[in-house]
């Protein structure tokens, strides 16, 4: 790959890392506020390394849930990464051995979206690792800063960080909404998830929304 092809990918990777780093500040602060220690909070970001699951885990613990619902909701929310893994395995030529173990750790929303957005395999591989390293470092650093600054930082809501999170998801979603079927799936998923919010435990509406994709995919595939 030529440097002209690499530099826009690297720019995007750093921008995504910076955005998730800012998001990590609020995760670190919210986690400590929920009763986790700084080492526990940072361990989640370095080891679990999948934002939605981390939020689900600390917010469940903070709401008084025990280790069963806390780890269960994190697992349910993290299950989507298995399907990102399917795409990454295609794009990165099915890595083996230790390389597969490392690739697995970096298989998250941001790296999958960036790898999928490229037009050739070499660019996908570069985008995956550039985004993975950028997000890993800045997600970890942001978490540590947020956890340490939890007492000093004003209410994350006052900074609008709770609106930044869904906007980031929307920005990842928007490029996929081309054609009638993606719009249909997105609309159905939103409707199902919101209807379920009051009646099922946190984390479950997202999973059921995933079933919408499975149902449409089963019906619509020739």
């Amino acid at each position: 790959m030529s440097p002209e092809h690499r530099s826009p990918i690297l720019r995007n990777a750093l921008a995504i890392g910076a955005a998730t780093g800012a998001y990590a500040l609020s995760f670190g602060a919210l986690s400590v506020a929920a009763g986790l220690t700084v080492p526990q909070t940072v361990a989640l970001s370095l080891l679990m390394f999948t934002g939605g699951s981390q939020f689900a885990l600390v917010l469940t613990l903070g709401a008084g849930g025990g280790w069963v619902p806390a780890s269960g909701s994190a697992a349910l929310l993290g299950f989507r990464n298995a399907f990102y893994g399917l795409r990454i395995a295609e794009l990165l030529g099915r890595p083996r051995g230790w390389r597969r173990l490392l690739t697995a750790q970096f298989t998250i929303d941001e790296t999958t979206a960036m790898a999928l957005g490229q037009e050739e395999p070499a660019a996908s591989r570069y985008a995956f690792w550039a985004t993975g390293l950028s997000v890993y470092v800045l997600w970890g650093a942001g978490t540590l800063a947020g956890a340490l600054g939890a007492q000093l930082l004003p209410d994350p809501r006052a900074l609008g960080l709770d609106a930044a999170a869904p906007a980031a998801f929307l920005a990842l979603l928007a490029p996929r909404l081309r054609g009638r079927e993606p719009w249909l799936v997105a609309a159905l998923a939103v409707a199902v998830a919101l209807l379920l919010v009051p009646v099922v435990p946190a984390g479950v509406p997202v999973l059921v929304a995933g079933l919408v994709a499975v149902a449409v995919g089963l019906r619509g595939t020739p």
Binding site: G52, R87, P166, L173, R176, A186, V206, A213
Partner: peptide, 24 residues
């Protein structure tokens, strides 16, 4: 096909949930 549609459903649901829901 399902793997292509899944991120769309999940990202759409996560966007909506994080925008207009708090807990249950």
């Amino acid at each position: 096909h399902i793997a292509a549609l899944l991120p769309i459903a999940l990202l759409a649901a996560l966007t909506a949930l994080q925008t207009v829901s708090t807990g249950s």
